[in-house]
């Protein structure tokens, strides 16, 4: 399988995230105005579709990456999963103990937090292995 070019990947992710932003701006406000439960569920879940596509693109890129890239992706994903898991467990206990009064909306932050932690971890993993700061690579 041929490697996925960085430019093509970045373009695809940017296009899909633009769709996500458009959905959140124009489609999401309709959720509160709809009374039919089925339509409401469909409207509520629609913005999840672009996120699923982005995750599929990330998986495809990792599968088709070369051996050094796969190593950096693995390190970054492991670190990101670890960081987010710690936050999730700590947050969960604080909510259960009623120390932190958070709603279910706090779950929204898991994916952005995972992406952020992954990006930072990838930068450091790449720097450690290649000796170069590659700010546009992940």
């Amino acid at each position: 399988m041929a490697r996925v070019s960085r430019g093509k990947y970045n373009l695809q992710v940017a296009a899909i995230m633009a769709v996500y932003v458009a959905l959140m701006l124009f489609e999401w406000p309709l959720v509160g105005k709809t009374h039919d439960l089925t339509v409401r569920a469909v409207l509520a879940l629609l913005p999840a579709a672009p996120i699923v596509v982005v995750i599929a693109l990330v998986v495809r890129r990792i599968i088709r990456a070369d051996e050094l890239e796969q190593r950096t992706y693995l390190i970054a994903l492991s670190m990101a999963a670890g960081i987010v898991s710690v936050f999730a467990v700590v947050g969960g206990f604080l909510i259960l103990a009623k120390v932190w009064h958070a709603s279910g909306a706090v779950l929204f932050w898991i994916f952005p937090m995972l992406c952020f932690a992954y990006s930072i971890a990838w930068l450091f993993a790449t720097r450690r292995i290649t000796g170069v700061w590659d700010f546009w690579g992940c």
Partner: peptide
């Protein structure tokens, strides 16, 4: 080699040892 330019650079600079197949 069907690898990234960064991988070639890392191999040349001795930062990364390639796998046997590579």
């Amino acid at each position: 080699l069907d690898v990234s330019r960064q991988t070639v650079n890392a191999i040349e600079n001795g930062k990364y040892d390639p796998s046997l197949p590579l």
